[in-house]
Write a protein that binds this DNA or RNA. Sequence first.
DNA 1: AGTAGCTCCCAAAACGTTTTGGAAAAATCA
DNA 2: TGATTTTTCCAAAACGTTTTGGGAGCTACT
Lengths: 352, 352
Amino acid sequence: MPNIFDVAKRAGVSITTVSRALNGYSDVNEKTRKRILKIAEELNYYPSAVARSLQGKKTNTIAFAPWLRDHIESRSFFKEIVGVLALGCLKYDLSLLVSGADSSQETNETLREVAGSGRVDGIILADIKPEDERIALLTDIGIPFVAFGRTSDYQELSYPFIDIDGAAGIRELVEYVYNQGRRRLAYLSGPFNTSYSVYRFNGYRESLNKFGIAEEPRLIVADLQEQSQIKETISKLFSLPESQRPEAIIASNDTLALNVINSLTEMGIQVGSKAGQIAVTGFDDLPFAAFLRPALTTARQPIEDTCAALLELLAAIMGQNEAKVKISQTNALMLGPKQYLLKPELVIRESA
Amino acid sequence: MPNIFDVAKRAGVSITTVSRALNGYSDVNEKTRKRILKIAEELNYYPSAVARSLQGKKTNTIAFAPWLRDHIESRSFFKEIVGVLALGCLKYDLSLLVSGADSSQETNETLREVAGSGRVDGIILADIKPEDERIALLTDIGIPFVAFGRTSDYQELSYPFIDIDGAAGIRELVEYVYNQGRRRLAYLSGPFNTSYSVYRFNGYRESLNKFGIAEEPRLIVADLQEQSQIKETISKLFSLPESQRPEAIIASNDTLALNVINSLTEMGIQVGSKAGQIAVTGFDDLPFAAFLRPALTTARQPIEDTCAALLELLAAIMGQNEAKVKISQTNALMLGPKQYLLKPELVIRESA
DNA sequence: AGTAGCTCCCAAAACGTTTTGGAAAAATCA
DNA sequence: TGATTTTTCCAAAACGTTTTGGGAGCTACT
């Protein structure tokens, strides 16, 4: 591979001139520039990104750092987001480095490596837990980052994040089924070791409170890990005396809802919005949600908006014009400086 | 951020010694090493990946380079693969750079940049077209790469690739519906500007030929771009006299099949494997395929195997032990040196 | 004619590592 | 004891850019 010296020699100028010609500086004669450009083209010369980074202290790369653990629920959404993010990076002339790990042990080591080694200029941190040591890690290292999601203590820590308002989404869903006349509302969730599970559950409790419905522990199952547990849970719920059985099942995400619907269907229980049927709702609006039978009523995560906001915020922080960060998404609620909440959108289909 | 000099000064040794201590060389006293390690820890020192790359000529990064254009069909599968790839990279201690572009103009410029600038050690090229100028580009630049998919002229060009045998998948599907007694088999496909469309269509023709069925132009529609066209196509097919209507519809991918099923259902036409119903098949086995009603009969792309093979092959090429490249996937067919074909798996469900 | 101001170019330093080729000090051997 | 080997360390070069701080050679002004 040719380097800048090869070009300089061939053109009969110094490497300084080659560099400045290629970078569009005005202190090089137009004729010389043309000549250098042609030679660079001929030689198939491309400046080394690595050398450039070393000198310029900029890599023009950001990392997307999720936890690639194999939850029943987590992987689908990760897949949705990375493509959109990659596309969005083009606008900022950034490259996207995907950096995750599956065993939680390694994770922090991988993240520390990518954050500490100067390989990237900024990081988008995903899959935030209620208490997430990665926030402190990155803050410590001093690398610009934006979290996708938020911890429980985001107010004290006050790091930048974009989150989707899970509580609001669930509240809308609950209100919707409440207005159908349903009162016994079960809530199914994965374990509370992911922030969004906690916030969504809070939404459920807030709604019950608002409508004056007492919490019924038997209707709340919040540690679902595997498919088999779901089936089991459902049959337990439906072995209750008729007057105590749930009239609606609020699932904390689409994948869970999918399994709930399948379990119910298998048991011969009708799912749907009509009276006599049991209502089921999800959250996320993954691609399959529209194609379920019955099609899933859910709250849509605004993926495009979220990714745009994440990049916008991160770019602003990296560009040091932190002062005037202003997220342009219309439905963004500002929780604190550089902390934004995006609203999910209610999607009514057939399952509720 | 501290650098190696800071550590050296604090430890009272030269930077050489720090470097060698950190990299586990044996010519540094165990006591000194311990001291250096502790100081590095205290200082929160991490070697600059950039400087290291510059010196070592290795970035330990590979790029995933798809075409992120917004086809009716292409995006879902891209999303599937990037997550698995990212996970697989961990085993090889590689990072994954996602580098795509949406307008086809930019694409080559982006690719040239990432390939020519030494930012990555290797590239996984996806979304191969029947004639794909990117192959020549990368060969020219001389960067190690593996294509996911293959051009029409892969034999002359002879570059490394992993492909999924689309023809074989379609053949199995066609044979399956043929054995149900169906003879009038329509074929629906997106435009032939993507390799897999061509190979899959070939599979269809080979099967017809094998079973002595004449090709019926009216049953072959191969330029579907939008949803609306699909509905239109379907109604045209079903406005034929009864004796000429298709008994099965072979769609070249799941997304297409999904829309076909929806269109048919809207028109009140029963889809399924039973006599009197029309059979519909897809290809890919995307996550939603199992949840359609009727659930989609399709050919599953072995994503995990494919990603594993891509990485295995690329790693071998990058490691210069090209000679003994041996793909370990059990169902891999070798087409040429470093050229492998993986077999899709028939997934029988309800739609056919 | 002298000087100030352009235009166009360049040598050298800096970015932070690893590698190379020793060299001093300590240990071992004869 | 002197010679040899081993252990432990280091100075300098190299990787390929960009930036800094000028410096010729012209042109234009007074």
